[in-house]
Write a protein that binds this DNA or RNA. Structure first.
Length: 575
DNA sequence: GCCGTTTTCGGCCCGACTGTTTTCAGTCG
């Protein structure tokens, strides 16, 4: 079993424990452990073999034993027992808004409901309204909720979420009662996919802002409305939440709405230990009830004796400890980037010529780019045959002459890693290229051992410089290849090959947990746009956000290097 | 079930909103 599968088991255990009515802290413990396993950059099997399971945050003796049991037998007695006691199909009910573990247990024990279909038919037949604590309104709410689950849009990729988010920000900022409006939630933390959109608004007349939002033509469903917040469903199926506080409290509000939940729990614990209570409205000194308003986030963190923490780090993955010890990383920024090593032209499946790409890259402030069209194996993308490569070289030379010193254009290729781990070009062709990216595009469903061996074999080719989108995942839905990451990272460390953080918002690949681990291991990283047209050179902003979430600093990323250093590095490789 | 700048035992964030209630439970972020 891999990390993800063990985490799924623990989430299932947590769901069932919760419905069963186990104390909440036990279920939270399983969820926390599951979350940390998903973000563990090393294979759980390795950690087990090294007897270091309890070093994982949130994993103590009991959960370590359960991981051991799962890895040894592939099963978990606790889960089997729970599935006997509580119908597992009840977990479906937790998807419905306003149905939590208590309601699910109520429906099961008092109405014999065990799954979503049963809940729907009970609601339609008016059987829920007479249950304790229920009424007609609750019954209707649940029915609406079931329909919403059915039509709810899947998670958005980052550029779609920001496009929609920015439209709303512009609209909110034009409202006469709005002093300030900012993105919050996972959007502001730049998570790789986004569910709901969250906004923090400063206004001295919150009720009028709520009213205006409810009148917006795109709002089709009101999920909740209060004095200081409202939650609505848009016609495209996206849920949107807006919190509103007076300007003087905006710092507390923005901090709270940005999350993550786990980060906020830690911050509030910290406040509590200092005799302070932090809410979305204000900081309160518990000794005398004095309310300390914070207009900025900096004031909130400062009041707790902390430096401001960049939103990308607010995931309770060590940022609180780091800021306390004064070693928060100086995160990489877009302005640090001077190069882009992965883009396509009309020679394969790109929309723009080499010259157009180069001119646009100059506009973006780049000093070096690499044109990396597909190799011939990827027929669907019009890959280049070896003869084409020599002709393309002539065109690059011409463009280079024309543009002079304003930019340096490298000839590269995105070379297919074949199913057997060999590369799509022979070594003599690879040697002609200035830079070689190797990528997986096909046969991605090979078993873990096979695809890991395939990638490692390719990484060992001395001409290969960068592994393109290493997991080959596609957001928001297609999982990456079932790679043994410990082995892949060790190979990168040994060979000195760089790993790409592909900045296409559908990829953001290398995934952040492995990017963070790679940097810790001293592995070089590259952030590349993979642009297929000039407008997409701007993708780098998403790659930067992924890198920041992986705690990367400029020095970890070869695109920030000076041109001479980049050329020197390329010369040391492939020989 | 985890964890330790109060603690190896006794804590474990905080408030808004909703619908059901006559003061609260459940859900959510």
């Amino acid at each position: 079993m891999n990390n993800e599968q063990v985490a799924d088991v623990f989430d299932r255990v947590a769901d069932l424990l919760e419905i069963k009515g186990e104390i909440i802290y036990k279920t939270l413990a399983y969820r926390k452990a599951a979350d940390n396993l998903r973000n563990l950059p090393v294979d759980i099997q390795t950690t087990r073999d090294e007897k270091r399971l309890t070093e994982i945050p949130g994993v103590g003796k009991a959960i370590a034993d359960k991981i051991e049991e799962l890895l040894t037998t592939g099963k978990l007695k606790l889960l089997e027992k729970l599935e006997q006691e509580v119908p597992p199909s009840l977990i479906e009910l937790l998807e419905v808004p306003d149905v939590g573990p208590k309601k699910a247990a109520l429906f099961w024990k008092q109405a014999g409901i065990t799954n979503l279909a049963g809940l729907k038919s009970a609601a339609l037949n008016g059987l829920l309204r007479n249950l304790p604590g229920m009424g007609e309104k609750s019954e209707k709410r649940i029915l609406d909720g079931i329909e919403m689950v059915a039509r709810r849009s899947k998670r958005m990729v980052l550029d779609d979420a920001w496009t929609l988010g920015n439209q709303w920000l512009e609209w909110l900022r034009e409202l006469p009662d709005v002093k300030r409006a900012e993105a919050a939630g996972s959007l502001r933390r730049w998570r790789d996919t986004i569910g709901d959109l969250d906004f923090a608004v400063a206004s001295d007349n919150p009720a009028r802002v709520v009213e205006a939002i409810l009148q917006h033509p795109d709002v089709v469903n009101v999920l909740g409305r209060g004095e200081n917040k409202t939650s609505v469903e848009l016609k495209n199926g996206v849920a949107l939440q807006v919190w509103i506080q007076p300007t003087i409290n905006f710092g507390c509000l923005w901090q709270f709405t940005t999350g993550s939940k786990d980060h906020n729990v830690r911050v509030r614990e910290l406040a509590q230990r200092q005799g302070l209570s932090l809410s979305e409205q204000t900081l309160t000194r518990e000794s005398d009830g004095e309310r300390i308003s914070c207009e900025t986030e900096e004031q909130v963190y400062e009041a707790l004796g902390l430096r401001w923490i960049p939103p990308e780090l607010r995931e309770d993955r060590g940022e609180i400890e780091a800021v306390k010890h004064g070693d928060l990383p100086n995160l990489i920024q877009l302005e640090d980037m001077h190069a882009d090593f992965h883009m396509h032209s009309t020679w394969s499946d790109g929309r723009n010529t080499i010259e157009e790409m180069a001119l646009s890259a100059i506009q973006n402030g780049h000093k070096i780019i690499a044109i990396t069209d597909h190799s011939s194996g990827l027929g669907i993308a019009g890959g280049l045959r070896p003869d084409d490569i020599r002709m393309q070289r002539a065109e690059i030379d011409t463009v280079q002459q024309k543009l002079g010193e304003s930019i340096r254009i490298l000839q590269g290729a995105e070379v297919e890693i074949r199913a057997d781990g060999s590369l799509d070009y022979p070594d003599d062709v690879l040697a002609e290229l200035d830079i070689v990216i190797i990528s997986l595009h096909t046969s991605l469903r090979q078993p873990g051992e096979e695809i890991t061996a395939r990638l490692i074999k390719a990484m060992n080719n001395p001409h290969a410089d960068i592994v393109g989108h290493p997991s080959a995942r596609l957001l928001p839905n297609r999982e990456g290849a079932d790679l043994d990451w410990t082995a892949v990272l060790e190979t990168a460390q040994k060979t000195g090959i760089a790993l790409e953080i592909n900045a296409n918002p559908h990829r953001l690949d290398l995934p952040e947990a492995y990017a963070r681990r790679a940097a810790q291991m001293g592995i070089l990283l590259a952030i590349n746009s993979d642009a297929h047209r000039i407008g997409r050179l701007d993708n780098l902003v998403y790659g930067i956000s992924a890198a920041r979430r992986a705690w990367l600093q400029a020095g970890h990323v070869i695109n920030t290097w000076k041109p001479e250093k980049i050329m020197a590095w390329l010369h040391t490789r492939s020989g």
